[in-house]
């Protein structure tokens, strides 16, 4: 059982309102549950217990961040949700999705890794086209859809460029376009901007928020930055390591659209302080 102090549920209405911290604040999720993790355990073959008893529900159209120090199992959660690797115990349900003949749900998701993870031998167009190609779609029929995805990330003119001709931020945009080209219901992002400089990161943060608002998919965003998670998310799931577990689940009530004025607001600072504190509690050795 987690201590009461560690389970910081933050509820707030709109930016100027004070941040309330308390136990068991019910979350008013913006939609029905899309993904449900119940008692998820993950032990790797070398004995590392990456996750212990993780319960988590992700609502439709939610923007959720998984925040925690490195090694706390954030990537593992994301990979398990994506269907990569097996659970040791527990289950992950997709209540709203069709289940195929083999019993696995139609996950319908896009994944963005920490590195752009592009095929260096393929052009930007072919990289973005990949998910459609693997689904057996023809290049000609999908041209518009690929170009639309490139336009979403402001890369209209770069369809024929090769990845190595692009800057780090542009490569990450290609990676995002590839994840969005199938118009998925869920976008999983594993520290996607961690390797970028701050200016580029802020810019991509804004672009991501815009895409999320315009397209109403669900985002599960892994980060180890308190500031980034507060800026972006409706909800922050704080995790602790050894073993990896969820120790707090907090709402960031600030209204969208959020922009650079939110970054400098008092409310933003208050949220950051609260989240930092629960994160630090997470890092303290258990009593």
């Amino acid at each position: 059982m987690v201590s009461a102090a560690a389970t910081a549920g933050l509820a707030a209405v709109d930016p100027p309102a004070p941040v309330s911290v308390g136990d068991d604040v019910p979350h008013s999720r913006p939609g029905r549950s899309l993904i449900r993790l119940q008692g998820v355990h993950k032990a790797y073959s070398n004995g590392t217990v990456a996750l212990r008893d993780v319960d988590l529900e992700i609502g439709q159209h939610e923007f959720v961040s998984l925040l925690g120090p490195s090694g706390c199992g954030k990537s593992t959660v994301l990979r398990l949700i994506a269907g990569l690797g097996d659970l040791s115990a527990g289950q992950i349900e997709w209540p709203l999705s069709r289940v195929d003949a083999g019993g696995s749900p139609d996950r319908d998701l896009g994944f963005v890794f920490q590195e752009p993870t592009l095929m260096p031998w393929a052009t930007v167009f072919d990289n973005v086209f990949l998910p459609l190609r693997l689904a057996g779609k023809s290049r000609r029929a999908m041209r518009d859809q690929v170009e639309e995805a490139l336009a979403m990330v402001h890369l209209e003119g770069f369809a024929n460029a090769y990845p190595r001709e692009l800057s780090g931020g542009m490569k990450m945009r290609v990676s995002i376009a590839r994840a969005l080209v199938t118009r998925p219901k869920v976008l999983l992002m594993d520290e996607p901007f961690a390797a970028l400089d701050e200016i580029t990161r802020f810019k991509l943060n804004n672009d991501l928020l815009r895409l999320w608002q315009d397209n109403s998919f669900t985002v599960i965003f892994v980060t180890h930055s308190v500031y980034e998670s507060v800026y972006l998310s409706q909800r922050i799931v704080v995790m602790a390591a050894r073993p990896g577990r969820v120790i707090a689940d907090a709402r960031i009530g600030a209204a969208y659209p959020r922009d650079d004025s939110f970054r400098t607001s008092d409310a933003y600072n208050r949220y950051c302080r609260e989240i930092s504190e629960s994160l630090h509690r997470a890092m303290e050795p258990p009593a």
């Binding site: 402001h154 001709e165 931020g169 400089d197 810019k203 804004n206 672009d207 969208y256 959020r258 922009d259």
Partner: peptide, 22 residues
């Protein structure tokens, strides 16, 4: 277009670092 309207830099697309030449 939504959030970015109030952002100081109204210039649209790309990252500040440009592509390498080769």
């Amino acid at each position: 277009m939504t959030a970015v309207d109030t952002a100081p830099a109204a210039v649209q697309p790309d990252d500040l670092d440009s592509a390498p030449v080769f």
